[in-house]
């Protein structure tokens, strides 16, 4: 009898992996945005929240253990998402070795679906920069460990940095617009509610995230 390829070895299986890892990352970006809204309640509120993130799980777990657990899950999701995307891209290139010579005229494929690769790369590069800027403070000239509120303002007071944050979050929004719809299709759940959900989800995340650099630039938060 022929041996079955593992589920992850099939392209449809890789799409499940992309959908589930995408869902994990979507949950994260939503919570990340909601948590950061504390910036509007002042320095104490945001810094206390940041401290709480390190404490959750205590006293059952030692300090930061749950946080590191979650970070590990996120890293695994990022790895699975990127690896599956890469390997499906290779498969798709092979599926059309001779390209169309005449210009293609796309009817249904939209900007978001056609640019997933690029918006994804922008988001990854942004996340690296974001960690250097606000987690490790490497690229933040006035970084004070533990004073999140101060660090955010010090970073966004640099206009080019604030603009980069806005652009990266728009790319994230475009990625989510297709991704949040696509994950249901890949998992086999269909209905017209999918588009409504993806627009609402991408909209909420982008509006929330973009509001932070804008609020600092326009002096709403200082």
């Amino acid at each position: 009898m022929r041996t079955r390829p593992s589920l992850f070895a099939t392209a449809v299986g890789k799409k499940y992996a992309m959908a589930i890892s995408g869902l994990v990352l979507m949950g994260y970006v939503l919570l990340h945005m909601v948590g950061n809204l504390k910036i509007y309640f002042g320095a104490e509120s945001l810094n206390k929240y940041a401290e709480w993130l390190r404490e959750i799980g205590e006293p059952a777990l030692p300090r930061e253990w749950l946080l590191w657990g979650l970070r590990f899950v996120l890293l695994a999701a990022v790895f699975v998402h990127i690896y599956a995307a890469y390997s499906l891209t290779v498969m798709n290139r092979r599926a059309r070795p001779v390209q169309y010579v005449s210009k293609r005229d796309y009817v249904a494929a939209d900007f978001a679906s056609r640019t997933m690769r690029w918006t994804g790369i922008i988001v990854v590069l942004f996340v690296v920069w974001h960690l250097l800027d606000l987690t490790w403070g490497t690229t933040n000239p006035d970084f004070v460990s533990g004073d999140v509120y101060h660090n955010v303002i010090a970073s966004f007071e640099r206009i080019p940095v604030a603009i980069a944050y806005v652009i990266a979050n728009l790319a994230l929004g475009v990625h989510l617009y297709h991704g949040a719809w696509s994950l249901f299709q890949s998992m086999g759940w269909y209905g017209t509610w999918r588009r409504t959900f993806s627009i609402a989800f991408a909209g909420v995340v982008v509006l929330g995230n973009v509001s932070f650099p804008l609020a600092v630039m326009f002096g709403v938060v200082n």
Binding site: R4, P5, T10, A11, V12, K14, K15, L88, M91, N92, R94, A95, R96, Y106, V107, A108, A109, S113, R114, M116, H178, W181, S182, Q185, S186
Partner: peptide, 18 residues
Amino acid sequence: VEEMENYFGSCTNHRECS
């Protein structure tokens, strides 16, 4: 599905087919 994947690419939900 497995036979399909021997010949063709994978779906990224562009909806061009439909």
